[in-house]
Simulated scan of single mutants.
Amino acid sequence: MSALNTFKTLKLDRVGRDFGAMNALKDLSLDVKRGEFIALLGPSGCGKSTALNCIAGLLPTTRGSIWLDDKRIDTLGPEDRGFGMVFQNYALFPHMSVRDNVGFGLRMRGVAREEAAKRIDAALATVRLSNQAQKLPGQMSGGQQQRVAIARAIAIEPPLVLMDEPLSNLDAKLRLEMRQEIRRIHAGLGSITLYVTHDQDEALSLADRIVVLRDGEIRQIGTPEELYQRPATLDVAEFMGFRNRLPGDIVGTMGDTVSLNVGGETLDGSARENLAGGTAVAAIRPEDLQAGEHGFPAVVDICEYRGHAFFGAAKGPGGSEVFFRSASRMNPGEQVRLAADPARVLVFNEAAA
């Protein structure tokens, strides 16, 4: 077995990647233990796919180094790293059968026919496609094609499986089903999975830890629970579902509790930073901002039913758009008051907005 397949830790040490004058990655440092599932999360252009391609060897790094234990790998070509890659568009050969697609990487590596057959059979069994081996990709659904791409990636028995937004082309039902499949497959491999996504639900449901990137920099690393409940900065909070950003004047503090004047009403929350000035921004998830008898005033724009509750958008203080939850349907133009449990309100510096 290759030394790369027996590693314990993947280490990125101040990895940077420039495109001319643009710094696409800025001193990325990260340690990942064998068996971990890591999601690289962030908006388009944040550097997450660039980071994945640098780890894969598809892009050279401008500075820094990448290690598997004490073996430096950023100096190796992609074929010598032996990582499995799953792309957004599947990248299957349309003229080859499923079995031949899965075995392609093994043939390129010169694996003996008998050994290759065993690995192909095992990979197809892992993704539950053993009975589809002779089909062409065009005869399969999108979810099945993505499972073929995963089988091809794992057939080479890689130390790392790298996935670049693999579910973005699938419909909502298939995405949910494939999340479960990917997590199950990862658990059976015992290697590292690095998963690029811009979808916070995917990251939360799949990852052991999430790395949030913005403008080529790591903004926060933590478990799904840590990032969901305690985002460290306003931009991380916004990406973790805190869609409401309400500026206000600080009118009182007690420990971590901060009181803001928002639309003439007091809104209490928890400080997530050392607040520098007389103004701050409260971040609240739509499901936590609820219509009722108390709170700041707003005017309803739209209200829609989502099965378990009504969710709406309204014009809040200063004309800002706010998103809220209601127990009953509300009509456009209706006056409403919105409030949130202080424990569910996070307060950040206004400058971070």
Score class of each variant (00 low, 15 high):
G318T: 06
V236A: 05
Q139V: 13
G263V: 10
F348V: 15
T253E: 14
I192Y: 04
V102A: 07
F348K: 06
K315F: 06
A232H: 02
D69H: 07
W67S: 11
D27W: 00
G105V: 09
L68G: 04
L10E: 12
H95D: 04
R230E: 14
I182F: 00
D256M: 06
M85P: 02
A339N: 10
G252C: 08
D268K: 14
R219G: 00
S328C: 00
M163D: 03
M108Y: 01
N261L: 05
V212D: 11
D235Y: 01
K315W: 02
K71Y: 07
V299N: 12
A149K: 13
A339T: 09
G82E: 03
D70G: 08
K173S: 11
R337F: 11
K33T: 11
T6Y: 05
M108R: 11
G278H: 05
N131K: 14
K8M: 12
A39D: 02
R209G: 01
G138L: 10
I185Y: 14
A155S: 13
L234G: 08
A291N: 11
R128A: 13
H198R: 05
N131D: 15
L174M: 15
A172E: 09
R214G: 09
F242E: 02
T266M: 06
L346T: 00
C303L: 08
D13H: 14
A133P: 00
G105N: 09
R245G: 04
A187F: 07
G277H: 15
R14N: 15
S328F: 02
P332H: 04
F310G: 03
T62M: 01
T193Q: 03
A91N: 04
F93P: 00
M85Q: 04
E273C: 09
E165H: 07
Q132A: 15
V196W: 00
K315L: 06
I55R: 02
A232L: 09
A51V: 08
D31T: 14
P43A: 15
Q220E: 05
Q145S: 13
A123V: 07
T266G: 01
F311A: 00
M108Q: 14
G142C: 10
Q146I: 13
G252L: 12
L227Q: 03
A133D: 03
Y195A: 14
M108G: 06
V98S: 07
L206C: 05
R184A: 09
L260K: 08
A151K: 12
E157Y: 08
W67P: 09
E36R: 03
V236S: 08
Q139F: 12
V148M: 11
A39M: 04
F104T: 03
P158L: 08
L346M: 14
F242M: 00
E157L: 11
L58R: 03
G138R: 01
Q229P: 01
L204E: 03
L124Q: 02
A116L: 04
I73F: 06
